[in-house]
Simulated scan of single mutants.
Amino acid sequence: MTKPLGVILAGGLATRMGGGDKGLLPLGDGTILDQVISRLGPQAAGMTLNANGDPDRFAHLGLPVLPDPLPDFPGPLVGVLAGLDWAATQGADTIVTVAADTPFFPENLVSHLTETAADMAHPLVLAATPRSADEKTKSMSRSGLIRHPTFGLWPTALRDDLRAALQDGLRKVVLWTEKHGGREALFDIPGDPFFNVNTPEDLAHAQELMKDHR
């Protein structure tokens, strides 16, 4: 399988950070988005950003900016749909999505997702991590793993099915992926590779983690 196109999901409302774009918050010598782009770039055939509002605030990144194709911020799946529609115009079969507020995702994200999807007619795979003893989440799968729905491999062939599901009111990612036989790619590595910045305290923690990653 050739490298998928990369879609950075930045369409959320960032309410716990007081609004605004979490990806543009400072991290290390740049921003969270700079770190996300540096990790995704080598893994993808090209990149775009899903974000709403004035796209000029991202002009310095040199990436296409895709608004949600449906109104009222219906969740991350609409960002996936935006990416799939864009990828279809580029002649691509798949996209990989990452969250704009998760600066330390695995450098083998795409290779492991694609390996997991090797024999699937429509590659559809979500990243997952083991569940710790004290962790409670609604994203746990039947296999006891924690799914990370904004980190996945998605086929452009299913974009119209996804559009119809969203228009019918679907909001939960895993309900749609399970319907289409989606799989999980387990990332059993030290630390929290899908740690995301939701609060000012998270941002301070990310600054400390950045020192280690350097």
Rank of each mutant, 00 (worst) to 15 (best):
R39Y: 12
L40M: 15
L40H: 06
A44R: 04
A45P: 07
L49F: 03
A51R: 14
N52E: 06
L61M: 06
L63Q: 05
P64Y: 13
V65L: 02
V65C: 04
L66I: 04
L66S: 11
L66P: 13
L66E: 06
P67K: 09
L70E: 10
L70P: 12
P74Q: 15
G75H: 12
L77T: 11
L77D: 04
G79D: 09
G79W: 11
G79A: 06
V80Q: 09
V80I: 15
V80H: 13
A82G: 12
A82T: 12
G83H: 10
G83E: 09
D85V: 00
W86R: 08
A87H: 08
A87C: 05
A88T: 12
T89D: 14
Q90Y: 01
Q90P: 01
T97M: 03
V98N: 08
A99T: 07
A100M: 10
F104L: 02
E107G: 04
L109Q: 06
L109W: 07
V110E: 08
S111H: 01
L113N: 02
L113I: 08
T114K: 08
E115M: 02
A117P: 09
M120G: 04
M120V: 06
M120N: 04
A121W: 00
P123C: 03
L126E: 13
A127T: 11
A127K: 01
A127M: 06
T129I: 14
R131M: 14
A133W: 10
E135P: 01
K136F: 10
T137S: 15
T137C: 00
K138V: 00
K138H: 04
M140D: 00
